[in-house]
């Protein structure tokens, strides 16, 4: 049945309202990023700069930015790969094992997600130092894997729990090894869930700031979120360059997200439904 004309108009209006709510800050961000450094902020705020320029983007796209970008890609990429792999292994057993301890263990996984990072960062720093990992990619990757694993396990567990066990049982009866069953049946079926979890982990690690700041020392090892702070001084912010950099930082993730959107939605559904 088709909605009536007034109903459709109302829905279209709501859609516009939603888009405006979401886009206003972005619009502002882009507007500020195009404002020449010499043009002061107007009162009342001007929606669009008088003489838009790409100067801030030229400044922001420094050699350091490229280094930060590569670092972010390496760290986020490795984190996604490791978290999803380990999360998948664990989630599988969390749904399939009939171990006495399984519920308690799962509660511990959820509880781990509640630890405030500011309270555990110094002990983690000490361990990294003890292992000689400070100022390496490994330090960041290990830290990011740890903090993203609980949610990854949670999401994947929901997804795997919804998958029928019958297929696996049939394959086991055929004499296939447990690992083969896992890799040849479970993993392909779980692909939407895996992609969904991967995007979640990517978005979280791409933004992470506190660990990245603490565990890296040199400019050569910094990631993008820390690099953005080059434009935040002790007493003032260089808004134009900061906003231009922010736009550049966001674009890659947005691109990845749009490419994988379809899988992501499907994966989270399944993951979340089970809970």
């Amino acid at each position: 049945m088709r909605p009536s004309v007034p109903e459709r108009a109302a829905l279209a209006g709501l859609q516009l309202l939603l888009a405006a709510f979401v886009l206003l800050p972005f619009f502002w961000m882009v507007s500020v990023s195009l404002k020449p450094a010499t043009e002061p902020f107007a009162i009342p705020a001007r929606l669009w700069p008088e003489a838009p320029t790409l100067d801030n983007y030229v400044t922001a796209f420094r050699p350091e930015f490229r280094t930060y970008f590569v670092n972010s890609v390496i760290v986020s990429g490795a984190t996604v790969a490791i978290t999803v792999t380990l999360g998948l292994l664990a989630a599988y057993s969390f749904t399939r094992a009939r171990l006495v301890l399984i519920t308690a263990l799962m509660s511990l996984v959820v509880l781990a997600q509640m630890f405030p990072h500011a309270a555990i960062i110094i002990p983690i720093y000490r361990m990294m130092r003890g292992a000689g990992l400070l100022n390496t990619y490994a330090a960041l990757i290990i830290a990011y894997v740890s903090v993203t694993l609980p949610v990854a396990i949670w999401l994947l567990r929901g997804f795997l729990g919804k998958m029928p066990v019958a297929l696996e049982e049939a394959a086991t009866i055929d004499g296939a090894g447990r690992l083969r069953v896992f890799f040849e049946i479970v993993v392909p079926l779980a692909r939407p869930g895996i992609i969904a979890t991967a995007v979640y982990v990517l978005i979280v690690t791409w933004q992470e700031f506190l660990f990245a700041l603490s565990f890296t020392a040199t400019r050569e090892m910094r990631t993008l979120p820390v690099g953005l702070n080059d434009f935040v001084g002790q007493y003032g912010i260089r808004y134009g360059e900061l906003m231009a950099s922010s736009v550049m930082v966001s674009v890659p993730v947005i691109a990845v997200f749009f490419l994988l959107q379809r899988y992501f939605v499907a994966g989270l559904t399944a993951g979340a439904v089970k809970g």
Binding site: Y125, R126, R129, S214, V232, Q234
Partner: peptide, 14 residues
């Protein structure tokens, strides 16, 4: 600057 204090303290305590 905004993070210098935290960064330095983390290093010293660590």
């Amino acid at each position: 600057y905004p993070e210098y204090q935290q960064r330095l303290l983390t290093a010293v305590q660590g």
